[in-house]
Amino acid sequence: MTEKITPVREKILSNIRIQRFTPGKDRSPYFDNFKMEVETGMTILEVLRHIKNTQDSSLTFRAFCRSSICGSCALRVNNKTVLACSTQLMPILKDFGKATVTITPMANLPIIRDLVVDIDPVIEKLAKMHPYLVENKDRVPETLEKESLMSQEELEAFGLMTDCILCGSCYSACSAVKADSNYAGPLTIAKAYRFSVDPRDDFRGMRFQAAMDQGLWSCVQCRKCIKVCPKDTRPADSIRDMRRISIDAGIHDSPGSRRAKAYTDDVERIGQVNKPMLPVIVHGTKGWAAIEAAEAGLKKHGMEPTRQVCSLPGQSGAAKIYAKVREIEGKKKGGKTNG
């Protein structure tokens, strides 16, 4: 028994609001409104192409693979960074309950024209991270007769980050980049981490330094990069792990790592963080000014500041957890050298 197939296709007359800007011609960005019929199945990219083909051929955007693998087409739709090619418009119109949608370029990057941003700053930062494998002679054979041996588990330790398509979405959404344009950005540190935990690599020391120089500790772990990444590579997790392995490797000498170390040491010692003294630990003698200012503030409100923090009752429990963690980590390391 067969039945004729008639696909259901809804149509909505919509208003597409697009940010326009041509440097040299326009003083500042402005918006153009385009009316068009949006039908079920249309991606943002199809909408942009439709407008370019039928209404305004000067509308400028990037796209290449149109299948979410090349990373060309990231932009913002109603302020959220997405890939234009893999984002359906109809559900967005329905979610927002209105027939208007606003399209703007990625943030944190200079605009070249309309929706096209200059991605070179990201690439330059990436290039400084030594984002390539440097052969570890113990693992990588000298000749092309053999491949290096590596287990699937070893591969999976960094496999997720090899999914990155360099689309820049995470960079556009990043709080730390917004606060400080010198910060390397999520994808670049995540890439450095990817190579640093590849057992075939022999260059992690250089990468730690490069990451430190470019703000490894500036990330505030807001996890926006995780939210927007179209490939689910979880850059913030890699950054966290990069911090961990760099401390393990004995690189303590930065405000961020000193803070992290003070937190962990204090909790083990007294069960809580010795907040009053933190500025000195993190920033050295410069920290005293901050402490004195804070003390003056407290005094003004009639409070008596203290530099002593007492041990909490639960401290012994915390110390036990630390001991346990050390035991497990010791075993792991032991296992590696023996195996």
Binding site: V140, L144, E147, S148, L149, M150, Q152, L155, F158, D198
Partner: peptide, 23 residues
């Protein structure tokens, strides 16, 4: 073919692995 694939592997290409750790 085997040579170029191994060269790619030596350069870091993350091929999936067999249980013996080969490509």
């Amino acid at each position: 073919a085997p040579e170029v694939i191994r060269e790619m592997e030596h350069w870091g290409c993350p091929f999936d692995r067999t249980t013996e750790g080969k490509i």
